[in-house]
Nucleic acid binder design. Sequence first.
DNA 1: TTGTAAGCGTTATCAT
DNA 2: ATGATAACGCTTACAA
Lengths: 342, 342
Amino acid sequence: MKCKKQVVAATMKDVAQKANVSTATVSRALMNPEKVSQSTRSKVEQAALDVGYLPQSMGRNLKRNESRTLLVIVPDICDPFFSEIIRGVEITAAEHGYLVLIGDCAHQNQQEKTFIDLIITKQIDGMLLLGSRLPFDDGVEEQRNLPPMVMANEFAPELELPTVHIDNLTAAFNAVNYLHELGHQRIGCIAGPEEMPLCYYRLQGYVQALRRSGITVDPHYIARGNFTFEAGASAMAQLLDLPQPPTAVFCHSDIMALGALSLAKRRGLKVPDNLSIIGFDNISLTEFCDPPLTTVSQPRFAIGREAMLLLLDQLNGQSVRSGSRLLDCELIVRGSTAKNKS
Amino acid sequence: MKCKKQVVAATMKDVAQKANVSTATVSRALMNPEKVSQSTRSKVEQAALDVGYLPQSMGRNLKRNESRTLLVIVPDICDPFFSEIIRGVEITAAEHGYLVLIGDCAHQNQQEKTFIDLIITKQIDGMLLLGSRLPFDDGVEEQRNLPPMVMANEFAPELELPTVHIDNLTAAFNAVNYLHELGHQRIGCIAGPEEMPLCYYRLQGYVQALRRSGITVDPHYIARGNFTFEAGASAMAQLLDLPQPPTAVFCHSDIMALGALSLAKRRGLKVPDNLSIIGFDNISLTEFCDPPLTTVSQPRFAIGREAMLLLLDQLNGQSVRSGSRLLDCELIVRGSTAKNKS
DNA sequence: TTGTAAGCGTTATCAT
DNA sequence: ATGATAACGCTTACAA
């Protein structure tokens, strides 16, 4: 029996014919079962089953003027930090019948224009931002009305978006404080770019922890890097070249911490014996490197999930949950930190 | 001037009114400019510009019975190996006006059912498989007619799909041969699951390289793991427990190689002095670990791009390019391999 | 060359 | 409780 009766997907008309009712009734029976009689309901349900009917989204979406698709803007899809957030986002979206498009900002090819077009052409109902900037020119949002948006992981006060985030300041504070408890006095910081709000908070945490410990903050002990391995290495070099190099370093990301670790080793330093290093994010790399990295773990899956829930709330017109969600994070102590022996 | 004239996106009707023509003419002027007079064309173009018109995909798609959206099935979105493939896929798709949905198979939540539903409900026009299996029960594809598909990275001969891949056998052969050239005679293999065609080829490459070198293949030197760090470690343990443990190991993936590396270190072995290790994939981790891993590099971005091009060809009804595409890969020699000193 | 009208698959309004 | 009908935005015969 090779021939297929039904080459194309079943439509509502098919169900209607099979059940001897109108398409309107089919729609009601399936959407608002309480609005049809018991008998027709089961008649329709049976017919739908028989022909293998599933509502075709394009017709429905056109009528409802929605796409049931969301866009998540990712600064760099190849950065492992974002993978698990994305998974949280997608699973949660799927649970609520939404599809998710990934907007990768790292490459030029995904032009800014593309994203705004997705909005104008009604291909997305909402956006989830994992970076701190809108993925198109400022000012555009004044001309166009933007769809519901939520920000996760980063901050952009001027956008006034619901946000899912950790307490970066406290996390950094605790990390640096841990180094101080280990007896370190000269503690450096390898920070991310100034323009990232994230980094501002983490730097403040660093500063406050030092102050709290009665240590004077020396700007020379603060090096900047752009979240790459190489930047971490050269920032570390910069710190080690100081007359009194730090005995411990707090980094704004694991990748930079790994770069710092690598350079320290190249210079013949033993980690953690001569130098303690703390990273941030707890990407899987940190378990496997040598020594394994002490770092701050963020609940990445939960960040994705909560952000999506916030977005779904907006789409459903519910009062925006609570504005924002603060999630817990945790200092994971591994082998890259030790008591100060200098 | 805060009030917005146009709260909703401009439709073709708006353009038609502005240009004093019918919507049909607008459609023609924009789609088939040669079918309208010079004057009306510019009139329409101007009007479209004025109202900021972009075709709304839902209307168009409904009419054309397509979604301009593709689905890429990823075995595990958190496996860094796939990230860059996905980037190649997305950029190429965007260049051709297609959107890409990511189907992550790793978690249960993304039920198999979901994927087949995307097909039935016409939400996707085609699929790109990064694993060797269809993401739903066998047999289903006999009842439903599946959309155009392309496979990348893996193999499934029975599906008879156009495929983008490297020559796994030769790559493995060269890697193992390199170990032999370094003087190693007892060469182990940490292989992936038997049911992955990929692993069959890599194992064959291992076997053929040994034979070619006149080395008898000892099945005890072949350990299996499921592509996780832990599996790599326990496979390594198994090999080291042999009466005559190998002096070099070829691994089917970097992650397993890192597991092996970690265990070897825990047992007090020096890599590469006492043991050489080769991985597969060249994920970014391999540059940063200690020692950096010798591995086989795959052109991941190109794999994604070529696969997408193949899929687009099918969608355009062009004769499927060439059936399949074979891409080059390369042995990257780093610090985890050295001359046999035993 | 251009306009009219039908249709894609749904849902919503209005009768019945 | 149900059915006819119009509508969402776009494309395309067919007519003019």
